[in-house]
Amino acid sequence: MTAAPSLTGTTADWVALGRRRRDGRRRTVAWGLGALLLGLFALTLMLGQSFIPPGDVLRVMLGQDVPVASFTVGTLRLPRATLSVVAGLSFGMGGAAFQTMLRNPLASPDIIGISFGASAAAVIGIVFFGLSGGAVSTFAIAAGLGVALLIYGLSFKGGGAGARLILIGIGMASMLESVIAYALQKASSWSHAEAMRWLAGSVNGATWGEILPAALALVLFGGVLLTRARDLETLRLGDDAAAALGVRVAWTRITVLVTAVGMIAFATAAAGPIAFVAFLSGPIAARITGPGRSLLIPAALTGAVLVLLADYVGQFALPSRYPVGVVTGALGAPYLVWLIARSNSGGGAS
């Protein structure tokens, strides 16, 4: 940190100092989160039903054939942990993008039904058309994007309003939920189990074939989204102010919508709709980093940490095994309580 400006310094000096400090903190936090994520990733590879020493883990990752460890780590734990990280990064970044764009910490894609299109399509595909694997994913991704665009279109009435987008999303979500309920009711017991596994959000039995498309989508859409990070931050000031500052509001909004939903739809196709990761990552990241610029990267890292931790808890820390989505979903309730408790600090959930 640089020394404080002398007492005679202008306001501009103090502002610049504050900005430097915040940037410094943001960088520290981002590196810290990254290190935490790496550490957790390594730990989940080593720990489990049986302990695999780090040396063996490393050799498996380098492609050597190690008895026992090759199967436990190479086939079971590594894909599982990788999918957790990829899904967590996608949900975290997509959720933070939505919360920033709509200026509301409650307005994440899993709450306002943007990602319900993917779930409903996947369940319909599994139950009624007997699809599996890649076909389900393709169907889910197409439907996820389609529903998101439909919600956006319906909310667009002489300039799309954020509030209307949220409410129409909620209405659409409850309709899709009843589609899911109906499909599950009609399902045979095999496809019912398959659909439930999908809906609960689980990284169990992950395969590289599932992970690859989600990882590619994360790189592609995430890259585009990060180039829009600045405009997205400016949108925080309100549509009018952002437009006055030279941001193309409608264009930014549709870009963010498509990239965030695309990322989330691909991750959902691979891991199912893991509840509340998109909802929780942004606020947690904001809490750690403090005020500043774009939350996208800290939120993505937080999402990955959340999924890794929750999956481990769901596997080993509870009396019976739970899919990761149940654990993360239950995390949402304390967060809501905390929102109430924080109410007197003001300015929160507006």
Binding site: L106, I111, I166, A275, G329, G332, A333, A349
Partner: peptide, 30 residues
């Protein structure tokens, strides 16, 4: 929904209701 300025607006009420529903349905699944 009453948290923050403006009190319980329709928007915040709907959002907090949905968020609560999601959390509760996770509990039910659990």
């Amino acid at each position: 929904a009453s948290v923050g300025p403006g009190g319980a607006t329709p928007l915040k009420l709907a959002l907090s209701g949905v968020a609560t529903s999601v959390a509760f349905s996770s509990f039910i699944t659990g």
